[in-house]
């Protein structure tokens, strides 16, 4: 039906196929609303932050007239997005303790022996050393490690970002938020970290989208649609 001949729209047959499939499948509610919300806020804000942040570091567009205020606008968008990202992070941190077992803190630190084995299995799977691998319902161990690493990167970006923000926003609150970092590392290093995180997150975005597409394709577990609906398809076998 899907791989033979020219495609013909046959709604009844498609429906039958869907029904037969549905009978075998289990739809599991995995990603709760706060998880999905935070995920999409992260995507939106991080993409915006990467673009505006790169502009701030290297102003590739030049104003034609004085009233364009490109840099001021870029900085404004950068700061607003940063605060939305922080709001998203607060929501996600809360959900690390309040969410279901796929959203909890424990999920992101696969320290048990089985989990470590699982991570190695996945490394083998992605480097063509193994043809099949068992996919757990939530995050697999390797994905969990990569997300913990990404969260740490985002944390670094927020901390160094607040530190840099405190340079133009003086006061006790901004000192608490990030100004104290200057007592530990110097201004130049803070900027270097903040800038490097941008490149790491860009690389992560590429890998993340590819791996998700790959797994959705191989596993047929509706991984891509699951981040919209929350439901993952889990097969009988």
């Amino acid at each position: 039906m899907f791989d033979k001949g020219p495609y013909v729209w046959q709604p009844q047959k498609l429906d039958m196929f869907r029904k037969s499939r549905k009978a075998q499948d289990k739809r599991l509610y995995v990603w709760q609303l706060p998880v999905r919300l935070s995920h999409w806020l992260n995507i939106l804000t991080i993409t915006t932050l990467i673009i505006t942040g790169y502009y701030i570091s290297d102003p590739f567009m030049h104003a034609i007239s004085e009233d364009q205020s490109i840099m001021a606008k870029m900085r404004f968008i950068h700061f607003v997005s940063a605060h939305i990202l922080i709001a998203s992070a607060i929501l996600r941190i809360y959900w690390l303790f309040a969410g279901n077992k796929f959203a909890r803190l424990k999920e992101f630190f696969p320290y048990t022996k089985e989990k470590r084995k699982e991570a190695i299995e996945f490394i083998k799977f992605y480097s063509f050393l193994k043809k099949e691998v068992h996919h757990p319902i939530g995050h697999n161990a390797l994905a969990a490690i990569s997300y913990s690493f990404t969260y740490f990167m985002i944390f670094l970006a927020i901390l160094t970002g607040y530190a840099l923000y405190s340079e133009s926003h003086t006061g006790f609150f901004w000192y608490l938020a990030g100004g104290w970092v200057f007592g530990i590392i110097s201004d130049g290093t803070i900027r270097l970290i903040h800038h490097s995180v941008m490149w790491v997150l860009t690389a992560f975005l590429i890998v993340h989208v590819y791996i998700v597409w790959l797994n959705d394709n191989i596993e047929g577990n509706g991984l891509i649609s699951s981040i919209f609906t929350g439901y993952k398809i889990y097969h009988k076998d």
């Binding site: 047959k13 037969s20 047929g220």
Partner: peptide
């Protein structure tokens, strides 16, 4: 290498093909 999709998938496909 070709997609080594789950057997279930191919089973389903076969069933779907039969329904044709």
């Amino acid at each position: 290498l070709g997609y080594k999709q789950k057997e279930r998938f191919s089973k389903e496909k076969n069933e779907a093909d039969k329904m044709k």
